[in-house]
Amino acid sequence: MRNRRIATAIAATVGAFTLFSTQASAITWENDFATGLSPSSSGSSVWSYSPYEDANAAFQENGDWFFVSDNRADGFSGVAEWRLYNTSGTLVRGGYVWMNLGAGESRWQNKDFTEGYKLQFRACRGHSGGTYLEHCDSWVTTTA
């Protein structure tokens, strides 16, 4: 009987720790719309292309700028999906930068990331403002 109480107490402690640590690490996904015609800074960019060339996305580290283009008139928008990890490898932010101005259009969107964090992003097409994505490239990794 005593062993069962100890086991129950340990299980409750582990469960509470798991619950609180999971809630503390939850993030809110950010939704942005690329609207800028050019970044306010210059520099080289890292690129991602969707598999069917429906969309392109790029990240310019100097100034934390995303570039997104919609390359096909198909009723979908071009989108850059991104994830930001701290130096311990924990996901701290994530989101989408949508380009919803129509096929053949491209725009820039500025973000503000912590310097030195790991950024992963990829180009996709999807329903603008939603989270339904398809035809995504593999993840590209760079430094914010």
Rank of each mutant, 00 (worst) to 15 (best):
G104K: 08
R72P: 01
N71C: 05
R5E: 01
G75V: 04
S44L: 10
W47H: 07
F66Y: 14
G43N: 04
G43Q: 03
E81I: 00
C136Q: 12
M1G: 09
E30L: 10
N56M: 03
D64E: 12
T87H: 13
K118M: 08
M1Y: 10
A26H: 09
C136Y: 06
F121R: 02
A144W: 01
Q120K: 11
N31T: 07
Y49H: 06
A24Y: 15
D70M: 01
R125M: 04
N86H: 03
W139A: 04
D70Q: 10
F59K: 01
G102K: 13
R83T: 03
S77R: 07
R122P: 09
L84M: 14
A12D: 02
E134G: 00
C124L: 02
T90A: 13
F67M: 07
C124W: 01
S138Y: 11
G75S: 08
A103K: 07
V79A: 03
R125D: 09
Q23M: 04
A34E: 09
V79W: 01
H127F: 14
G75M: 13
N56V: 01
K118Q: 09
N71L: 06
T8Y: 04
P51R: 11
A80N: 02
G36F: 08
I10F: 09
K111G: 08
G75T: 06
E105D: 10
G43S: 09
V14D: 02
G94E: 00
V14M: 06
P51F: 08
C136P: 02
A123T: 03
Y117I: 02
A26F: 10
F33S: 12
R122W: 00
K111M: 14
A123W: 05
A12M: 12
A123D: 07
C136K: 05
D64I: 12
S38P: 00
N3G: 03
Y49A: 00
N71E: 02
W65P: 01
S48A: 11
F66D: 05
V92F: 08
R2M: 08
T90Y: 15
S45A: 13
G94H: 01
Y52I: 02
T87E: 12
F113R: 05
S38R: 15
R83S: 13
N31P: 05
N3D: 11
E115N: 10
W47Y: 15
E115Y: 12
L37I: 06
S42A: 07
A73D: 09
T131L: 06
T141F: 13
Q109H: 15
Y49N: 05
F121K: 03
V140F: 07
S50Q: 05
T114Y: 08
D70S: 06
I6T: 00
W98T: 08
S106D: 10
G78K: 01
L37W: 14
F17A: 13
G63A: 13
A58G: 05
W47T: 02
D32M: 14
T141G: 09
S138G: 06
A16F: 03
